[in-house]
Amino acid sequence: MIKQLVGLLAVLAVAALFVALLPLMAPTELGPVTRHYVEQGLVENRGANLVTSIVVNYRGFDTLGEVTVLFLSVSGAGFVLRRREGLVPEPQRRSSELVQTASRVLFAPIVLFGAYIFVHGHLTPGGGFQGGAVIASAVLLLLLADRDRLLPHGFLSVIESFSGFGYVVTGFVGLAATGSFLANRGVIDLGTWNRLFSAGVIPVIYVLIGLKVGSELATLLDTMMHADQAGEGHR
């Protein structure tokens, strides 16, 4: 009972905080930093999607840290639910013929769609995170169709580590070329606004992020589905 009461009090306190903050919640003008990002975004980066420009270039260092956090949480989940090597999973109920055939037909188009999303991240809504999630859902389809399938973890971790490494290398290339980490101008030709080959290193980094997020989320799904049974691994 006390727990419920304390919980209710905490919720009420947060509600009061929000009511006090309500007048601050209706902006009418962009702040000075955002104003620079919006006005100079095309001049400095040539990326039509300003959100992508901010995520990958202006705040690219933050995104590097963010990708690291995702990696840590996925590997943390993998550590907690360890899949023992050489463990043959118990045979499960087979999925229907329809699911199996459909997953075989649909896997490649879905992966292609994910790649399309992150290749066009600097032009249209979308990008590495969304494309990676779409690729992971294609892998999920495979796992659903054949529940005994074990994903090739070695292959996935090679993709994952090479894309992470490529991200850092791109940053250092910017450092060597212009003197600032993850710089965009002066590394590759920026190209013309609204073309596929534009925006310098932004598409390169977003493709790397897409591969990294896709392989991480696929590993996560596999970990959750095939974790060793009944917790014997840690006793």
């Binding site: 959100v51 901010i54 995702l70 990008g127």
Partner: peptide, 22 residues
């Protein structure tokens, strides 16, 4: 509109699913 909060939330959603999975 302001793109900065959108960029922030974009990454926050992905972090969110990682933390939820953990």
């Amino acid at each position: 509109v302001d793109p900065l909060p959108q960029a922030l939330v974009l990454t926050a959603i992905v972090i969110g699913v990682g933390v939820t999975a953990l």
